[in-house]
Nucleic acid binder design. Structure first.
Lengths: 217, 217
DNA sequence: AGGCGACCCAAACCTCTGTATGATGGCAAA
DNA sequence: TTTGCCATCATACAGAGGTTTGGGTCGCCT
């Protein structure tokens, strides 16, 4: 059972409309949530089991996952771990009919956005989903700029990376030359290449990019 | 009711021994936790109510707070908020006899380390407290280096801060001079003062400190 | 009134950075 | 083998960074 909709009949792949992936083995629950979420113009993906979600391709848009804790096959909490392992770091909103406190605490510790007991108020679910989508928006923005950064960094040759490492550590060209066994002029050339490839014009910017990349001596 | 102990009769203010502040209106619970925590060489501070904890002075050491949700006077969750407002950002471990899921979720969202239902296993409490103390250790280390940083920054004059802002933004001395209506040589002098007062020798280090301080143009 | 600190500027001098021009050698893919 | 990329180095020059020395104004506190 897989169903999907978007709020206004727009393309299901529209990367600007946030989506919510819902996993529950009760079709009535799926139906109700679908209706609720579409009422605030969110696209939905409906799944009857965790396996279906894993098999599916989620849109390249901000989104989150709404999960029943008691699922066919796996525990929702274990599934949470599986998703993280597969790099699907979408924020998760749990719901449950027969949950307990340890369960909710474990879920929250593992990064869940919320943990709702059935029956919950519609507004609580909408609030949770909205918060989850916002969190994903932030995550995706951060991931995107990290990707741009590493893409630039990977255009550097091995030598250029060495030079960059020492330069952002604050060493002078001649010191870098000494460490690497090069002449100063060669270091200057590598340094110039680093600046150009990393798309920066000042050392200050290079240092910031290096920080974001986690480069340390 | 206020009591305090340290594991080995050492000074109660020993800043190297982590402590646990326990708040519960049941003396038997306080006694049991005191014994449990001392068994792993933690210092304890025992309180019968939130007010007592607020009136007390917590040690300048890594520590955490163990709190019953149902407390005389205030709700434990509200108390959690009060502590944060007063700058007492110690990690909190909640315990409760009659809690529910929304309560635990709210606590975890507000940053609680754990939320244990009574009766809990001793080991669960010890694990939670250990994790909380470790978190506090990290927090305190981060706060300490932030304080050192702002202490240095506050020795700067207004002009020096302006110059620093533009310098770490990557502007050249002459550009800074133009913006501030100064001569380049004056900017150089301010810049030199900034480097000295901030305790750095390279621009790279200054940029990193500025980043940590959240300085932006 | 005197002293202090912040702020401002200039000349001189040195070091460091950045770039261009030109050239050599290694190495791997086409 | 040719082509291309990487790496290396030299010389030369322009521009930017950094310090010292020396001097000036202003406002505030004692």
């Amino acid at each position: 059972m897989i169903r999907q909709t978007s709020g206004r009949g727009a393309s299901a792949e529209d990367p600007t409309v946030p989506f919510v992936a819902v996993v529950d083995d009760d079709p009535a629950v799926l139906e109700a949530l679908d209706s609720l979420l579409r009422s605030i113009s969110l696209a939905t993906r409906l799944f009857g089991s965790p396996a279906e979600l894993l098999a599916a391709q989620l849109p390249d848009a901000p989104g989150c996952i709404v999960l029943d804790v008691r699922l066919p096959g796996v525990s929702g909490l274990d599934f949470q771990g599986q998703l993280v392992e597969r790099g699907i770091g979408r924020p998760i909103v749990f719901m449950t009919g027969h949950g307990d406190i340890p369960m909710s605490v474990r879920a929250m510790k593992a990064g869940a956005v919320d943990f709702l007991s059935k029956p919950f108020r519609d507004q609580d679910m909408l609030d949770a989903v909205t918060a989850a989508i916002e969190r994903d928006r932030q995550q995706r923005a951060a991931a995107a700029s990290r990707n741009d950064l590493t893409a630039e960094f990977e255009t550097l040759t091995a030598r250029e990376r060495e030079v960059m490492t020492h330069v952002v550590a604050g060493l002078m060209n001649k010191q870098v030359a000494g460490i690497l066994g090069l002449s100063e002029i060669t270091v200057k050339i590598h340094r110039g290449n680093v600046m150009r490839k990393m798309g920066v014009r000042t050392l200050a910017d290079l240092v910031r990019k290096a920080e974001a990349l986690g480069i340390k001596p």
